[in-house]
């Protein structure tokens, strides 16, 4: 048995990972360049805004309302152990705006949008539509990737803002109907407590998550393998990569914003 085999396996795996990181970095740089440098495709950007932003509203709204409602119940039960039930409005507000709004909203958009982008672009690749774009003097990165990444970066923060509001409303509904909070006091406590950066940091996270979601959808779609199996694998990779990147970047951004 070759004693160097395990080392060689580690080396191969490391090289593969570094190569993948390099490819993603080049793809990201190219995407940014195509977003900044004309020509632009406003119609494609508008379509992407509708597909990514508007059509994700129901799923983000549903996620937020149930998350806010469950959060209010949990905080009430937990804080009751040391007699601090009155902090429910404040903790729901800060929990939704800083963490749960952007992260859960981002994950839901990743499931819905990264998969759809990867499937669409992957199918276009398999059916030679990407090659057709090139022969029609149109750069696929500029025509397909740049509008989607730009649209997601701009619309996911809006989705997060809507999700924050709906999540707080979910907490409010449970707080006032189930936990005995006074309606006006609940709202006053929420808005008096919230600071601009609580909401602002969540919106910045939303923009970062939107960028990552669309980037991963486009990257895996553009690199899709052949046939239905290739497209299926691209969709799976796009959802997994965007979800993991959302969670990892969420930690890094939280550390950067609130770490000290």
């Amino acid at each position: 048995m070759d004693v160097t085999a395990p080392v060689a396996a580690i080396g191969r795996s490391t090289l593969r990972s570094l190569a993948a990181l390099g490819r993603v970095s080049i793809f990201t740089a190219q995407t940014l360049r195509h977003i900044l440098i004309p020509p632009y495709y406003p119609r494609e950007i508008w379509h992407a805004v509708i597909a990514i932003g508007w059509l994700s509203l129901p799923v983000v709204g549903m996620t937020a309302v149930f998350t806010g409602a469950a959060l209010a119940l949990q905080i009430y039960a937990g804080s009751g152990r040391f007699g601090a039930e009155s902090v429910v409005p404040q903790i729901v507000a800060i929990g939704m705006t800083r963490e749960l709004g952007p992260v859960l909203g981002g994950l839901m958009v990743a499931a819905r949008v990264a998969s759809s982008i990867a499937a669409e672009i992957g199918t276009m690749k398999v059916t030679e539509q990407i090659d057709a774009l090139v022969t029609l003097s149109t750069n696929p990165m500029k025509y397909l990737t740049a509008p989607r990444v730009l649209a997601a970066t701009l619309t996911v923060p809006v989705l997060v803002a809507v999700g924050d509001a709906i999540g707080i409303m979910g907490g409010y509904l449970v707080g006032t109907t189930r936990l005995g909070f006074n309606e006006a006091a609940y709202l006053k406590n929420t808005f008096d407590f919230l600071q601009f950066w609580d909401v602002g940091s969540g919106l910045v996270k939303g923009a970062a998550f939107g960028f990552l979601i669309a980037l991963m959808g486009c990257y895996h779609g553009m690199n899709s393998g052949r046939g239905a199996q290739g497209v299926g694998a691209a969709v799976k990779a796009a959802v997994v990569a965007s979800s993991v990147l959302i969670l990892a970047s969420n930690y890094l951004l939280t550390e950067a914003f609130f770490g000290s």
Partner: peptide, 16 residues
């Protein structure tokens, strides 16, 4: 260069 070319793809490659 590409503006001088036209291409018919095997499966049509129409944008659906």
């Amino acid at each position: 260069f590409l503006s001088h070319f036209g291409m018919l793809f095997q499966g049509g490659a129409l944008f659906d």
